[in-house]
């Protein structure tokens, strides 16, 4: 079934209005702090493709640099799709193979190895995400550009991302859009159909799929979050709505367990004014 037909009715958005707000937001948040350019990681997936579309419209395609950062185990289709998206929106691109720097670390004799294969997989995945982040921030210095984030609301609420890796950015235009809404908006902004329709993947190893790894479809998860988070319903009421007890309990647990990922590190209070507790200034202070 096409992705668009799977979007729960509760989550459907006015794409033209969302586009206007997000384009305004990116343009303002980038230019008013003295920048005109952005860089971001373009994976070939739907989230970064949507960010490409928004950024190109907000800042002009000549001011948007897409950085493609494949690892040797990344699927070749992902790289091809990333090029397709960059071609579609006319973006300048840089390709940085992260294999040497990731492998160098894990091949060092002093790097410890876990016996647990699952931990090893996660370590490699996190390492890749963090290497990509360091490349983006390095290029942002070179290009005098801000780093745009590409995490959607579903993965931010699940904690399905790497802290200080793909979760790091200066401005995130899509962090208040559920995955289902990303599909809808990406379609409206003419992201290539192939990218919209393919199964979402973190692409950390061949054949990986978000939905089979999480065990639920994004449509189901998004609908559950919509009632729990946006409507502030109790879990019991959400279950009564037909979201399924296991699913509701699962996402509620992940939501709570990943809260730390959505906050700055905890600072031990000693003085009268502690950063972010009683030293409170807006991020756009002076702009």
């Amino acid at each position: 079934m096409p992705r668009l037909d799977q979007i729960p009715p509760e989550l459907r958005i006015d794409t033209e209005l969302a586009r206007r707000i997000l384009v305004t937001m990116v343009r303002e948040e980038v230019t008013k702090v003295g920048f005109s350019r952005v860089v971001f990681g373009l994976s070939g997936g739907i989230d970064s493709a949507l960010v490409a579309a928004i950024a190109a419209e907000a800042l002009g395609r000549e001011n948007v640099k897409a950085v493609l950062m494949p690892y040797k185990a990344s699927s070749p289709e992902s790289l091809a799709d990333a090029h397709l998206v960059a071609d579609t929106f006319g973006l300048e691109r840089a390709v940085v193979d992260i294999t040497p720097q990731v492998d160098a670390y894990f091949e060092k004799p002093e790097t410890p190895v876990s016996k647990d294969e699952r931990i090893q997989k996660l370590r490699r995945g996190n390492k890749m995400a963090r290497e990509r982040m360091t490349i983006l921030y390095d290029l942002s210095m070179l290009e005098s550009a801000l780093v745009l984030g590409t995490s959607n609301k579903t993965e931010l609420l699940l904690g399905y991302g790497t802290l200080f890796g793909d979760m790091a950015s200066a401005v995130n235009p899509i962090g208040d859009l559920y995955k289902s809404q990303v599909w809808q908006l990406a379609t409206a902004l003419e992201v290539p159909e192939r990218v919209v329709e393919k199964p979402p993947t973190a692409d950390l190893w061949t054949g990986q799929s978000d939905e089979s790894e999480i065990g639920y479809s994004y449509a189901e998860i998004d609908r559950t979050f919509y009632y729990l988070v946006d409507q502030r319903w109790s879990p019991e009421r959400v279950i009564a709505k037909g979201c399924g007890r296991e699913l509701v309990e699962y996402v509620s647990r992940l939501l709570r367990q990943s809260q730390y990922k959505r906050r700055l590190p905890v600072v031990a209070k000693l003085g009268r004014r502690t950063i972010d507790r009683d030293f409170r200034y807006p991020r756009d202070w002076g702009y």
Binding site: P9, R12, I13, D14, E16, L17, A18, I21
Partner: peptide, 8 residues
């Protein structure tokens, strides 16, 4: 920005 927003 729900679907019924109609641009507003």
């Amino acid at each position: 920005v729900g679907e019924a927003a109609q641009g507003i």
